[in-house]
C-alpha cells in the first residue's frame, strides 16, 4: 500500500536569477514565505506561518483569500533539511510529500525543482480540510475562480 503511494505526480522546475543561499532561505524563512507562498488571489500573513526547520519540525501556513471569503491551512512536517540543497516536507493529514531541490548553476542563478509524491491521497485530504467540494470538477473550478479573482 505504501508503495503504490510513491508514484511521482508532479515535477516542476524553475530557474531564479539569485544565489542559491538566498533562494533556499526564501523557501524556509517565514519573513520570505509571506511574500510568495499563497496562490494568486490569496495571501499568507506572517503571523500565520510556523516554521520549525528540522526533521519532524512543523511547517504550517494559513493562506487567506484576498476577497475575504475564507482561509486555508496547510499543515506539514519537515522530513529533511539539507542547507542549501534540499528541503522536504510531508503534509500531516494526507501524506503528500514535497521535495524542493536547489542547484547552484554557477552563474549566480539557481535551479529549483519541486517533486510531489503521494498526490492523490493529498488531493482528497486537502479538499476535506478546506471544505471544498469532493468533486474534481468543482475543485478545478474553484482554483480557476481563485485565479480569475486574482487577475481582475
Amino acid at each position: 500500500m505504501a508503495e503504490s503511494r510513491q508514484s511521482e505526480a508532479l515535477r516542476y522546475t524553475r530557474i531564479f536569477d539569485a544565489p542559491r543561499e538566498l533562494v533556499f532561505r526564501c523557501m524556509l524563512e517565514p519573513e520570505h514565505l509571506t511574500h510568495f507562498w499563497g496562490p494568486v488571489g490569496m495571501s499568507t500573513p506572517l503571523d500565520g506561518i510556523t516554521v520549525d526547520p528540522r526533521p519532524g519540525g512543523v511547517f504550517e501556513t494559513v493562506m487567506v483569500a484576498d476577497s475575504g471569503s475564507g482561509s486555508y491551512t496547510m499543515r506539514a512536517v519537515y522530513d529533511e533539511i539539507v542547507e542549501p540543497e534540499r528541503i522536504s516536507w510531508t503534509d500531516a493529514g494526507s501524506g503528500m510529500r514535497s521535495v524542493s531541490a536547489f542547484v547552484d548553476l554557477g552563474d549566480g542563478r539557481t535551479e529549483v525543482t519541486i517533486e510531489q509524491r503521494n498526490a492523490p491521497a493529498a488531493f482528497g485530504e486537502e479538499q476535506a480540510r478546506a471544505g471544498f467540494s469532493s468533486s474534481l470538477d468543482r475543485f478545478s473550478a474553484y482554483v480557476k475562480g481563485v485565479h480569475a479573482a486574482g487577475a481582475a
Partner: peptide, 20 residues
C-alpha cells in the same frame, strides 16, 4: 490534478521571482 498542482507552483514561483 497535475495541471492544478503545476499551476499552484507556477504562481508561487512567479511571486518568488518577483520577491527575489
Amino acid at each position: 490534478w497535475i495541471e492544478d498542482a503545476r499551476r499552484e507552483w507556477r504562481d508561487r514561483f512567479d511571486k518568488l521571482d518577483a520577491h527575489l
